[in-house]
Amino acid sequence: MKTIVFIWFCLLSGIRSNSELEKMPEKQVAPVINNLEEFQQNLPGYLNTSNKVAVLLDYDGTLAPIADNPSKTKMPVELEAILRKIAKHPEVFLAVISGRGLKDVQKQVNIEGITYAGNHGLEIEYPDGSRHDYELPTEIQKNYTNMVKELKEKVEKNGAWVEDKRVSLTYHYRDTPVELKDEQKVLAAEICKKYGFRPNQAHEAIEAKPPVNWNKGEAALYILKQKFGENWAQEVSVVFAGDDTTDEDAMRVLRGLGRSFRIASDAQIQTFADFRLPKQAVMTDLLKWIAGVYVS
């Protein structure tokens, strides 16, 4: 009787049982893939022409190498050519989910007919021009405006600058002298927290996201459900690739439902991804792997 009462209490209170907790993914040191042959060896049969494939990709550090300024990023010529080729295939669904503002990432990738998500998925635009925008509460919008103002006043100096993306921001300090970086980035993070925003470490930058239950993982699930329905996991094979902490949200929710790849040079990095790619250049081989099944 006590057992029945406890289970009923768990159901009412939302407490997860031990079996449910065991199913929750944990980070791991993922096996590495270095080239096209190793994609084929490690994932035999995962992609096949009897199933559609949904390819969800980050931009900075994934499709394009990290640059000293976001405006200078560019996809490698071979990678871009393959990406454009697979984007046209009717069995391939392609979406780019970026921390950049929506218009910015659209300009950088510049491929028609695909889905774009900006601001970590807070803004989504489909090929037909329809959109899904996560509406921030008025108080959060006010805090965002004040946060941007204070960051610009106090830490936009010594080569550092604030990238204002309307609902989230990135504080870039790549060009700040080494002896000043720690002090400025700590202060920037404190200012973000002061206004209730969540600072995340990125490549020589801090990304501040609003305090809402929405991230690249939620955006990925939303996009997949909108395109393929509630049973998308049975309808389509999913490939996700990203290179930083914000991409881990998508890797976590897709664990066991798709295959995800974390780009990282650190061989011991803990990740929710299924595999690690040691450098951005291996992304060209990932796209060749997809093209080899659906295009060739």
Rank of each mutant, 00 (worst) to 15 (best):
K2Q: 02
I4R: 00
V5T: 00
I7W: 00
W8L: 10
R16S: 12
L21F: 08
L36M: 14
E38M: 12
F39G: 13
N42K: 15
P44D: 01
G45F: 15
S50L: 03
S50Q: 13
V55W: 06
N69F: 09
P70G: 00
T73I: 08
K88D: 13
A95I: 05
V96T: 05
S98D: 13
S98E: 12
L102I: 15
K103I: 01
Q106K: 15
I111M: 07
T115W: 11
Y116T: 05
A117R: 10
G121K: 09
D128I: 10
I140D: 00
K142S: 12
K154I: 09
K154T: 14
A160F: 11
T170A: 15
H172G: 06
H172D: 06
K181A: 10
Q184W: 04
K185Y: 11
L187S: 12
I191D: 05
Y195I: 01
F197T: 03
N200Q: 12
Q201K: 09
A208P: 08
K209S: 08
P211C: 02
P211D: 06
V212F: 06
K216R: 00
G217T: 07
L221P: 01
Y222C: 05
Y222M: 08
L224M: 11
L224Y: 12
L224K: 09
L224Q: 11
K225W: 07
F228M: 02
V238K: 05
V239F: 14
R252I: 04
G256F: 03
S260C: 08
I263D: 11
A267E: 15
Q270S: 14
F272L: 12
R276D: 08
K279W: 08
Q280R: 07
V282H: 01
V282R: 05
L287Y: 11
I290C: 02
V295M: 08
